[in-house]
């Protein structure tokens, strides 16, 4: 559907089926409750949606929380590691999407574990304060994802054995490209 086509249509034709569920889904609520019981105020449950739970933690606690999630909640692998740049907050958020293969009950579930690292305006990847502890020893599968996150946003993962460049050219000397102050051509 092109823009010009849809612009002719009246706004009334747009069918919005917004069904915000007021009652939180039960199984996901249990999961989040387990985390809050264990860690209390260290963690913050950002939202609980059907099949999706998001937990925000501070970067000091992330290793502890991640081990708990792996051992007690049986999430055994990370599907992706996403870095998001928030220049207004002067922070970079890193979200781990965790899933489970071993526990059949968790087949539908994806748990997002988010943490934030300080952001510097003049980045020097690897040598500035934008650092996070690496989850590589807890979830092996984050190895390449964290490498990608390092080169794309300049978040150095401490404890990662192989913090090298992955996708970008060897001679890349610009800002990490996924930061918001890196502007692409003509935009």
């Amino acid at each position: 559907m092109s823009d010009t086509d849809s612009r002719k249509q009246e706004e009334t034709e747009t069918k919005l089926v917004v069904e915000k569920q007021d009652d939180l889904p039960k199984f996901e609520k249990e999961q989040s409750n387990k985390i809050t019981e264990k860690f209390g105020s260290k963690t913050e449950i950002a939202f609980v949606k059907p099949d999706r739970v998001r937990v925000n933690v501070k970067k000091e606690d992330i290793l502890e929380v991640a081990s708990f999630i792996r051992d007690e909640l049986h999430y055994d692998h990370a599907e992706s590691v996403t870095g998001i740049d928030f220049p207004t907050d002067k922070e970079i958020e890193v979200v781990y999407h965790l899933g489970s293969y071993t526990d059949p009950k968790l087949g539908r579930q994806v748990l997002s574990l988010a943490t934030r690292a300080p952001r510097e305006d003049v980045p020097n990847p690897g040598n500035d304060s934008t650092r996070l502890p690496s989850l590589r020893d807890i979830f092996y599968s984050v190895e390449f994802h964290e490498r990608e996150c390092f080169e794309m946003l300049g978040v150095f993962f401490e404890g990662h054995p192989d913090n090298r460049r992955l996708l970008l050219p060897e001679d890349w000397a610009d800002l990490p490209p996924l930061r918001k102050d890196f502007k692409i051509k003509g935009r």
Binding site: D3, Q9, E11, T14, K15
Partner: peptide, 17 residues
């Protein structure tokens, strides 16, 4: 279904697979 032009999402995030 018809979309309105330049649809905006809310202050939200979504992970689909």
């Amino acid at each position: 279904v018809k979309l309105k032009p330049n649809p905006k999402g809310g202050d939200d995030e979504v992970y689909k697979r």
